[in-house]
Design a protein around this nucleic acid. Structure first.
Lengths: 345, 345
DNA sequence: TCTTCACCTGAGAGCGCACTCAATCTCAAG
DNA sequence: CTTGAGATTGAGTGCGCTCTCAGGTGAAGA
């Protein structure tokens, strides 16, 4: 009774107890738990009863240790407080659980130190696979998982090896729809508030915006290309900066919805009306985008698609289910009420 | 090479490899890793170098198995897509990590089945402690953890035993401030949109509201006591119901911020202005409450306080740090711009 | 009746690590 | 030079479980 000072309580329930209580060997208990077909139904019933009676839970540490499979999937996101990620996590988790896996979440907050510890923890816990959905792997993560020891899923850019999948988001499609939509309404002066440009995907979104602008014969104005950080505060601050500029654009596109909501707030403070004085388009289409005032026109990147593709890609590597997942994530414009014809000024 | 069909890759790095590479016994490696003071610095250096060279990670499954401590803290929340919880999770995680623990998240979505599987998973993974922050334990959870085998933290109501802590949220304080604030502004007709009433805390909040109303001589009107579900959609729907009623209140208090944001949206659709036509007060003070239009007056229940108290209470049970945590979580009104004098009608 | 074979079951090994305990080593004092 | 206390070290055990493999059972065929 060395390491059990609490004493007496739970009498260290393990597979042996179940075995003796059911009058079988531990091997049979193990087989029963793992649904091995060859177990005599009578014995299996006895085992299940014993498990029930004793309120036994298999120790997954031990299971993982011996089987080599932890049944854990890592999920690394950049910022859990950005509503997009909880939505993604929820979806990811339910699909994972459905397939017998659990998830270990890591939130990097764009902080290299946290990122490092995140990866380390995943490795230590021996996750069976990892989805890195940070929208911008600062090399670090990429390098850590480059060895290809465990299956990975990346977004936009990732290592090239057999056990890794890269999900490509078609930012251009949705952003183009947004720009076109604005152009059709008559906007010519369009600003863009990006995410942190060290993030690959933020950069890609901005690049897509610039290209789309050029495609319709508009010249992107450098001072209307602001860098945000994908947060509410960042969006508000960027808009403040924009407002201090001499000329004002007639429309603003944002790299994500949080930024757009921040912009909405800055505009409210400045007593500017949306969409009358300024049109606004977000990106992601988080649930709350439908609830802003006015409801936000935004580019939808389905976190449902993303989560599904990620889990399935991982499962594919793990169990070669050959359930070929879609690796191209589409985006499309959802028109709500933050866009309108520019008012003559 | 039986169970390693991937072959060749990582040569099954374990403590033995490190030991032989460093020319010491595995015991010394173990001691080094665990920072046992008595290890000869020279040997320790050799060990660390070997660890570095071999890129070795201790297997936490094995560590947990033998030591009996998983260094895992469970965190069960009701709904990860409600922004309050990500904020709570982030705080909880960073404090936990700071103290050498990791967290396992479970989101119940108010679904008994998910709840059951959540608990089961926590138990199977042998978490060292669990914080149940669902604001409404439907007995189920309570019962599951009632045995007192592992330390737990509950909110509002929990089992009574040595290894369990119950955090009491002082809903009344903040709600009272809200009601008073409304009363001072001249409101007499105040509605309340609750959370799902099967949730203990939702019920408590509503009860507090009713009491506060009575305390200032107002009679709560039954038809103005609506049940929501703590979501955006629920808030919007409840407000729709309220709008269909013959008489309209002049102010609405909500059981959480998501509900309030839903209400805001319903009001926008109905072309009613806030706060001119109707005053509105939320609850929680999630970050985005500052960003609604107009910015939401709300009762702050600090998720920072909550997370801190929860982790510390758990650590206290685990390591008897006797870092006595505050068990009373205060709430207070944050006045922003959704409240004003009722307009004469 | 005896062998063959398919089918189950249980004994036992060992997953990677922490921890105990006895062995070894160091060094000062006798 | 010997001895003992104290400091380090390494062999070995076992955490709870899965999986292999050999042994045992019973039905079918010779």
């Amino acid at each position: 009774m060395r390491r059990s000072p609490k004493a007496g309580k739970a009498p260290k329930m393990d597979i042996r107890n179940v075995a003796s209580h059911a009058g079988v060997s531990i091997a049979t208990v193990s087989r029963t738990i793992n649904h091995v077909a060859s177990v005599d139904p009578v014995l299996a019933a006895r085992v299940w009863k014993a498990i029930e009676d004793l309120n036994y839970f298999p120790n997954s540490q031990a299971r993982a240790l011996v089987s080599g499979r932890s049944k854990l999937l890592g999920l690394i996101v950049s910022e859990i407080t950005n509503p997009f990620f909880p939505e993604l996590i929820q979806e990811f988790e339910s699909i994972a659980v459905e397939h017998g896996y659990e998830i270990l979440i890591g939130s990097t907050n764009y902080d290299p130190k946290r990122m490092e510890s995140c990866v380390r923890r995943m490795l230590e816990r021996k996750v069976d696979g990892v989805a890195i959905m940070t929208f911008g792997i600062e090399e670090l993560l990429l390098k850590r998982f480059a060895t290809g020891d465990i299956p990975t899923v990346f977004i936009d850019i990732g290592p090239e090896h057999r056990r890794s999948t890269t999900l490509i988001v078609d930012y251009r499609q949705g952003i183009n729809e947004g720009v076109q939509h604005l152009a059709v309404l008559g906007h010519q002066k369009i600003a863009f508030i990006s995410g942190p440009l060290k993030l690959r995907s933020a950069e890609t979104r901005q690049a897509a915006f610039i290209d789309c602008l050029k495609a319709i014969g508009l010249t992107p104005c450098a001072s209307w290309l602001l860098e945000g950080d994908h947060t509410l505060d960042g969006g508000r601050d960027a808009m403040h900066r924009l407002l201090r500029l001499p000329g004002l654009p007639t429309a603003v596109m944002c790299s994500n919805d949080m930024t757009a909501i921040g912009v909405l707030h800055a505009l409210f403070e400045a007593k500017l009306r949306v969409p009358e004085d300024l049109s606004l388009i977000g990106f992601d289409d988080v649930h709350i985008a439908e609830y802003t005032i006015p409801p936000l026109t935004t580019v939808r990147m389905s976190c449902h698609d993303l989560a599904r593709s990620a889990v399935f890609a991982l499962l594919d590597h793990l169990e070669s289910t050959s359930r070929v997942p879609a690796h191209l994530i589409p985006t499309r414009l959802i028109v709500r009420q933050t866009t309108a014809t520019p008012s003559p000024r």
